[in-house]
Design a protein around this nucleic acid. Structure first.
Lengths: 286, 286
DNA sequence: TGCACTTACGAAACACGTAAGAATG
DNA sequence: CATTCTTACGTGTTTCGTAAGTGCA
């Protein structure tokens, strides 16, 4: 159960192919085959069905453990390294699509030090901060007011809520429900929803509403908010968005808000700490 | 950052000696030296001062990460293995000294299947269950009513509260405070306390009380409750114990209780699940 | 028959033990 | 000067790549 082998296993399972994993990892097909064989021999279990490549039940189980394990592993490494190297005079920030609110954007100025901002999915934000690729991360999601976001656990990351905002249901133009003053999520479980990284995930919707349904009518894999709005307007599916970025019908039940959390490892004095402190002091929520 | 090297590092740091760690791990002194050198070269940092052997700040940082990392690592392995092998017809249970209350003991009967019970410290209970050495664990500690215990995170362990009980302050025979009807923890911060695995840890006392103090007057490293009571009676230090095992003055503030939690990994149908279900149904607290 | 994983085999790297060396208290 | 860690070096093992082998669509 070498992290090395674990990473190969995860990659193979992801691509459902030994050869594709080999290419991604810079190994030969043969090496990957041998690594998986070693892992299986070590556990005494078959982890993957071959042709087609599919995880066995034991493999599925291992996959659930492997991702958090590898995440914590690289987080530990990054944290030790970060603590040892002095403060750097540049700041790299990663934010999920809707996480960079005006207040946060304003907080990111930093004298003459250069700031780099990049966008990534929620999990990737955690990963980047944990691995030290970014100094500061902003992840958004929906949650009950003052509840923390449910983010992957990297072991040593500090997260503070920095913004919470009302949510609205964005409906198609002229949708019969658009005249309503407020909507309950449970009433919309039968509707078709738009699945997009920039908007709230349909999976999370089911969790929050506590019911099934919420079929995905359309899937948009890009980050562009205008495209999301255009797709919704065209009737491809409903969307849940923070009130400030879209017009729609307020969501009244359950009481959930759009929340942004700032994530960082242990901060050495320097730009990252300065910015984090400023944002933490000015935060809208705890 | 091989788990292998990490384990060696943790052991060396624990013993503050390369040779002692080598002996414990079954390596030569030389091998340990090389492993630490490899780890240090990999991170590009000195992790340990030599002679005397002491962690550097970076080493301290790594130590904080290493234990939970290794714990999760073996927990993942055990979980995959446990899920794959069918239910076993024996049950191994591990409990911290005061965790095996009468109700729990009663719950541990299991038809004709043999049950093995062993005692270990709180951390060790988690470790044993996580690593699959035990099927079921019971850990006790003090916490605010209905609050969970603060146990090491193994990633995939389920914990449910199964018992909560009042605490009493056990005082020396004829102690002036023993006539009081109730005591507040903060008033006892200046007293001398008995540190013993079977009783509440003095460290935890400080956390719960939110103040310093609580000097350790005597340290007893055994598990025997009678010895603890005798030591307390002899005036070697105060102790905090569940009301059912000792007579003393009820603790009135802060509102804390003695809590027992049952821990287990994913349970396959079988003895472990039977017992866990029974105890979970009959639990006193959530 | 062709694509995809496995196996065989050799070369390079690695990890450990023995034993000698260095440094500290 | 004795204890404790480091270094040098030899050996056995591991791991990877090349290339041939095998099996399923």
């Amino acid at each position: 159960m070498d992290p090395h082998l674990l990473r190969t296993f995860v990659t193979v399972a992801h691509w459902r192919s030994f050869s594709a994993a080999a290419e991604e990892l810079g190994y030969t097909q043969s090496a990957v085959s041998q690594q998986i064989a070693t892992l299986e021999a070590d556990l005494g279990l078959t982890l993957l069905h071959r042709r087609p490549v599919t995880p066995t039940p034991a493999g599925e189980r291992l996959l659930e453990h492997a991702a958090p394990l590898l995440l914590r592993h690289q987080a530990a490494r990054a944290d030790v390294l970060r603590a040892a190297t002095g403060p750097v005079e540049r700041l790299t920030v990663v934010a999920s699509p809707l996480a960079c609110t005006p207040a946060i954007a304003r907080g990111l100025v930093l004298g003459r030090s250069p700031v780099t901002l990049l966008t990534a999915g929620r999990e990737r934000v955690v990963e980047q901060v944990a691995s030290g690729a970014a100094d500061l991360g902003f992840a958004d999601g929906i949650a009950a007011p003052s509840d923390p976001l449910r983010l992957p656990d990297a072991g040593s990351l500090t997260g503070v809520g920095v913004a919470e905002e009302e949510l609205v249901v964005v409906l198609a133009d002229g949708h019969p429900l658009s005249r309503r003053r407020g909507l309950a999520l449970a009433d919309l479980a039968d509707a078709l929803w738009l699945q997009a990284p920039a908007a709230v995930s349909v999976e999370r919707l089911r969790e929050v509403a506590g019911v099934g349904g919420f079929r995905v009518g359309f899937r948009y894999d890009g980050d562009d908010l205008h495209t999301v709005l255009n797709l919704t307007a065209a009737g491809h599916g409903l969307t849940l968005l923070p009130a400030s970025v879209a017009t729609g019908v307020p969501l009244t039940a359950p009481r959930v808000v759009h929340r942004v959390e700032m994530l960082h490892g242990t901060l050495a004095p320097g730009p990252a700490m300065t910015v984090a402190d400023r944002l933490e002091r000015g935060r809208a929520v705890r």
